[in-house]
């Protein structure tokens, strides 16, 4: 299964810096599937899942952004009350260390998706497959 790549971009903590980046992506016709921001007092890290990661990376680099590519896993979470909570409980029991996570929206179907970045990917996938929890494919999410 091919990895889904997240693009992380360095952001200064000042008004307009996020708009600048999303503007660059819009200009290149990139569609965002997911987005999250982690921030400290002076700077932040913008994490995105773009429909075309390669094109997005090229566009951002050309504009002089500092970025990095990180493989992430998108989990198809049962779309029912406590669906996410169940998954997280299983991961905790399996001692999977989550570095960060955020949600991903899609209009293709009525499922709920969560983007995960974990310390030990192998262990993570083992826990998921042991409990029959599905991973999202690129096609399913409309990613190239």
């Amino acid at each position: 299964m091919t990895n889904i790549h997240q693009i992380s971009i360095f952001l200064e903590n000042r008004a307009g810096s996020l708009a600048e980046v999303t503007g660059m992506l819009a200009e290149s016709g990139i569609n965002l599937r997911a987005l999250s921001i982690a921030e400290s007092a002076d700077y932040g890290v913008l994490r995105i899942i773009a429909d075309d990661a390669e094109k997005a990376t090229a566009a951002l680099l050309e504009k002089g952004c500092v970025l990095s590519m990180t493989p992430v896993t998108v989990v198809s979470v049962p779309d029912e009350p406590a669906g996410l909570s169940e998954v997280l409980k299983l991961l905790a029991e399996g001692s999977v260390d989550i570095e960060y996570m955020y949600s991903l929206f899609t209009h293709q179907n009525a499922k709920a998706y969560m983007v995960f970045r974990v310390a030990d990917e192998e262990k993570f996938r083992a826990v998921l497959s042991a409990h029959g929890i599905g991973l999202a494919t690129k096609e399913e999410l409309g990613l190239k």
Binding site: Q6, S8, F10, Y43, V45, V66, L67, T70, Y100, R117
Partner: peptide, 15 residues
């Protein structure tokens, strides 16, 4: 200025 070499997706690593 932040450089690609020192940048990371993890805030704590940057910290």
């Amino acid at each position: 200025e932040m450089t690609a070499e020192n940048f990371s997706d993890s805030l704590s690593k940057i910290g």
